[in-house]
Computed example of a mutant assay.
Amino acid sequence: MSASPLLQEGLSLMAFGMGFVFVFLTLLVAVTSGMSRLVTRFSPPAPGPATPPPASTTPDDPELMAVIGAAVRRYRRHHDN
C-alpha cells in the first residue's frame, strides 16, 4: 500500500473526527444556553444583598485578652524550636 492513499485516509478520518467534535461542542453550547435562559425565566428573583451585622462597639473583654495571650505564649513556647 502506498503512502498517498494511507495519508488520504488519515486526513479524512481526522476531518471527520474534528467535525464531529465541533458539532458536539456547538450543540452543547446551544443546549446549555437554552437551559440557562429557561431557568432564569422561571426562577424567582434573587434576594438583595444581605446587610452585614454591625460591628461590636463594646470594649475588649480583659479576660478574653488574657486567655488569648496565654494561648499565644503557649504556642510560641512549644513551636519555637
Score class of each variant (00 low, 15 high):
Val72Asn: 12
Pro45Arg: 01
Arg74Pro: 02
Leu13Gly: 04
Leu13Thr: 07
Ala3Asn: 12
His78Phe: 14
Ser12Trp: 08
Ala50Ile: 07
Val72Gly: 04
Met18Pro: 01
Ser33Gly: 13
Phe24His: 08
Tyr75Thr: 03
Leu6Ile: 13
Ala70Cys: 04
Ala70Gln: 02
Pro49Tyr: 10
Leu11Ser: 10
Pro45Gly: 00
Ser4Pro: 00
Leu11Gln: 10
Gly48Gln: 09
His79Ser: 15
Ser2Tyr: 03
Arg74Lys: 15
Met1Val: 05
Arg37Cys: 09
Arg73Phe: 11
Arg74Asn: 07
Met14Arg: 13
Pro59Asn: 05
Leu11Cys: 08
Ala15His: 01
Phe20Trp: 12
Gly17Glu: 13
Ser12Met: 14
Leu11Glu: 09
Met18Val: 12
Pro44Met: 10
His78Asn: 14
Met35Gly: 09
Asp61Trp: 01
Leu27Asn: 05
Pro5Tyr: 01
Gly34Met: 05
Ala30Asp: 04
Ala70Met: 03
Thr58Ile: 00
Gly10Lys: 13
Met14Gly: 08
Leu28Ser: 08
Phe16Met: 08
Leu6Lys: 13
Ala50Ser: 14
Val72Ser: 05
Leu64Thr: 06
Thr26Val: 03
Arg77Asp: 12
Leu64Phe: 14
Glu63Phe: 12
Leu7Met: 08
Met35Gln: 12
Ala55Ile: 09
Met65Gln: 08
Ala55Phe: 07
Gly10Asn: 14
Val39Arg: 05
Leu27Thr: 01
Gly69Glu: 03
Leu25Trp: 01
Ile68Pro: 00
Ser56Thr: 07
Pro53Ala: 08
Glu63Pro: 02
Met65Ala: 02
Arg76Thr: 10
Phe16Trp: 11
Thr32Met: 07
Met35Asp: 14
Glu9Arg: 13
Ala71Asn: 12
Glu63Asn: 12
Ala71Met: 10
Gly17Ile: 02
Ala15Lys: 06
Leu27Phe: 06
Gly17Trp: 08
Glu9Tyr: 09
Arg77His: 09
Phe20Arg: 15
Glu9Val: 07
Arg77Ala: 07
Leu27Glu: 06
Leu13Asn: 11
Val23Cys: 02
Leu6Asn: 13
Leu38Lys: 13
Gly10Phe: 12
Gly48Lys: 06
Val67Met: 10
Pro53Met: 04
Gly19Ser: 04
Gly48Ala: 06
Thr51Ser: 15
Gly48Cys: 05
Pro52His: 05
Leu6His: 09
